[in-house]
Every structure is written in C-alpha cells, then in structure tokens.
Write a protein that binds this DNA or RNA. Structure first.
Lengths: 230, 230
DNA sequence: CACGGATCAATACAGTGTATCGACATGAGA
DNA sequence: TCTCATGTCGATACACTGTATTGATCCGTG
C-alpha cells in the first residue's frame, strides 16, 4: 500500500473527559432511554473508538453512576429554604421533576448507593434540613423514610407513564385498554375492591397524587420531631 | 450425509409450559442475578432450543413480568388479618422477605405495572384491607403511599446489601471502606450533617429501619382514616 | 394413505461489553 | 537533531445477547 492509498491520519483525537462522556450518554438516554446507551454509541457521538472510554470509566455501570450523579446536580436547590418541611418537600419535588426530564432516571433511582459528589450533596441537604430538630437516629430514619417514599412513588409514576405511552392512550382509558385483560379480570369478580376503585375512583393527576402522599409522610415525620433533640 | 451419519432425532421434545419456563428463569436469577437470565440459558435448563420459548412469551420483558407475578404469589398471606394496619404491615413485610429471597426482585419492583393474576391479587388485598374505612380516593392514596414507601425502602436496602457484599465487608465498615473515597469526601468538611450522621449515628439493622419507617407511614395513613367513609 | 398446518431446531444477524495487541505519536535523553 | 522508551489510541477479536427467518419434521384430518 503506497502513501497515496493510505489516508492521512485523522486530526489529533478529540480531547475527552468524563464530563463530555457523561453528557453524551445522558443525551442518548434522554432520546432513547437507558437501553439506547451503549459504549459504542456514546463513543461514536464523541468521534472516538469505544475502547477509548475505558480510560475514563472501567465499566458501563460506572458510566451509569456518573450519569445519575450528574443529574443529582439538577436536584440541589439554589438556596436552602428555612423550613425543614419545605426543604424536604422541595428536594422530593425536584427529584421528581428531574425524573420527568430524564425518565431513565427511574430505572436507576435507588438501585445503587449514590456516592458521587452531587449525590452526597443531596444527602447532605436532606440531613441538614433536619439537623438539630431531633436526635441523629431519628433524623436518619426520617430522611430514609421520605427518600424511600419518593423513590418508590417516582418509579411507579414513570412506570405508569410508560405503560400509557406504550399503548398510546390517555390516562383514564388505560384500564380499559391495557386490557381487555384487566377488564376481563375485573369482571371475574375476584377483585371486588380493585373493581370498585377502578370504577368509582377519581383519577387524580400524577403530581397531585405524588404530593398528597408526600405530605402524609412529612406529617409522619413532623410527629416525630416533637421530641426534644438529643 | 447418509442416514448412518445422521443422528437419530432426540426423543420427543420435553413438554413445556410457562410455569416451567418461569421456574427455570427464577432459579437462574436466584443463583446469578437478573443478568444471569438469558433466553438461551433458560431454554438450555429445559433441554430446549432458545426459539422454543417464543411460543410462550414474545419478548424477554414478558418473561420478567411472569417472574415478578410468580413471586407475588409468595406475598399473599394465607389469610387476611382483621386489622387493616396489620394487613398492610404484613404485605409490606412479606414483600420485603420475598425480595430478600429473590434479590433480583429489587431490580424489577415498581418498574412496571403488575397486571398478572397474582399482582392483581396483591393489589386487591391492599385495597380490601382499607375498604370501607374511608372514601375510595383516600384508600387509593393510602395504598399508593404505603406501596411507594416499601418499594423504595426495599430497593435501597438491597442496593446497600449488594454494595456491602461487593466490597465484602460488614455493615459498619462500609463507609470507611466503600471508600477511601467517602471518608475523604467527609473529611473535606463540605458535608457536616452527613459526617455527623456517619460518625454519631447508631447503625440499626435493616429490618428495624424498614419497619420503623413503615410504622411512620402507617401512622400517617391512620390519621386520614378518622374521616368517615364516603 | 396423502396432505395441510402446526411445532420446533438450526441458522443467521446485528448488536453488546470488554480483553488483547499492534501501531503510532509524543516527550526525554544523547 | 536523532533515537528510543512510554503510554495512548484504534482495530480486531471473543463470547454472548435477543430475536427473525427458514426449513425440516411431526401430527391430526380428509
């Protein structure tokens, strides 16, 4: 092969860093969900070979961790409100909003400990909100409980949202259309309470449902904060 | 290729049904986690070719759905206790126990609507527990809230459990060893509340933490049931 | 006994995460 | 200024994935 056949080597490789990599991965996930994120596609988006990424991450899971941590930054509020309740509420709502923007977050939320800088900062914010209002153990329990609630609630919301979107129908029509199956099941009479709920229940929008439960949980926390701090 | 070269066709194919398929898949998942479940391995475990499965399921996701529903059967209590609170508590605890037996369940919990027969039965049980104790909408909100809580809590618990197991150390040593990283972060002083929590917090076992939060949430529900039923 | 339709296995394909390794550009030393 | 070691990058390779297609083989029915 003569020089003339050989192509000129491509310009110096594009400089890379984790930020760019994570950005590309998030973009892909936003567009096509988590399953659209492959190391090859991420690399391609950065005009790099797939193996190049292994200088910055050592496994795909690590990339996911970085993605989650990146999004955690969106959750941190600009400034901490004074009231503990408003602080926790705000963190929960912002997490939900982030999950609505990046629906793939629902697949990752709670799936691994969040030890990245932003993840730690979020945890710090939660703990700080309650700092001094009760003994430490109570505070930890409170944070865990609230976090567990909204993690679970967000996951369910996104799951339903996807189910609706998959069948391509409005919220209310879902039960009727998600199934011939479900309706048939309900008609068997083996699920009377559920049938009644589907039939007579008001369908509130997801946000209302989310904050309703959230406020209940916050009430429960409030009830435990009456004890004097340790 | 003559007849003599050609092997006698293997005995009549093993009969198959969804139950067997799901059983094999669950066995694989119990042993090696969700990622150990591949259609090829499931089929191999049943002495069948991979394509054979597509007569019973049309996608791998459906197999996961069947697995989840199968495990839901373990959650249904033999008989419903009289007290609504005990009923919900029991469902939550049994879900947790199921998740501890089948840790892969944590990856799937809340990820999709559960419309299988057992999933519907579980939902029915939750709703039935509260039936008549408040207007339907309140009941639905209560069930959603409790479910969101324990879904999230279970997920976090399993996540931590895996993290500990991955580093192979005891609960308490985790913060110290999960990182050089975490300790260094804490030493920066940027996370005072978190540092205090790690330092001064008692480490309660996971079950205690779970039921503590659960009882808080149940208290919150109880507070809303005082209103007369609709 | 022949045939039609269903059932199943084999093959194939496009894609995955990651290990290995050879080429090559870059910086240090002579 | 030339040479050589170093470490980075890309190509190749491997074992594996979910699933479409296709061709053989069996069964029940005419």
């Amino acid at each position: 092969m003569t020089v003339w056949d050989r192509p000129e080597p491509s310009a110096r490789p594009v400089p890379l860093d984790r930020e760019r990599i994570v950005g590309a991965a998030i973009a892909l996930a936003d567009e096509g969900g988590l399953e659209a994120v492959s190391l090859r596609k991420v690399a391609a988006r950065l005009n790099a070979g797939p193996m190049r990424l292994y200088g910055y991450i050592s496994t795909k899971e690590e990339l996911f961790d970085l993605m989650v941590d990146e999004v955690q930054a969106e959750i941190l509020p600009e400034e901490q409100p004074g009231d503990w309740r408003e602080a926790l509420r705000s963190l929960a709502l912002r997490t939900r909003q982030a999950a609505l923007r990046h629906q793939w977050l629902a697949d990752l939320l709670g799936g691994r400990p969040t030890l990245g800088p932003n993840g730690l900062a979020v945890t710090e914010a939660k703990l700080a909100a309650l700092d001094g209002l009760a003994d430490i153990d109570t505070v930890m329990r409170a944070v865990e409980t609230v976090s567990a609630y909204f993690t679970g609630a967000i996951r369910r919301e996104i799951a339903n949202l996807r189910a609706e979107h998959a069948t391509g129908l409005s919220k209310r029509d879902w039960q009727r259309a998600s199934g011939p199956h479900v309706t048939k099941m309900l008609d068997t009479g083996r699920f009377p309470a559920l049938a009644k709920a589907v039939h007579d229940g008001t369908d509130v929008d997801a946000e209302t449902s989310f904050v309703t439960g959230l406020d209940w949980v916050l009430d429960a926390v409030a009830a435990r904060l009456t004890r004097p701090p340790a």
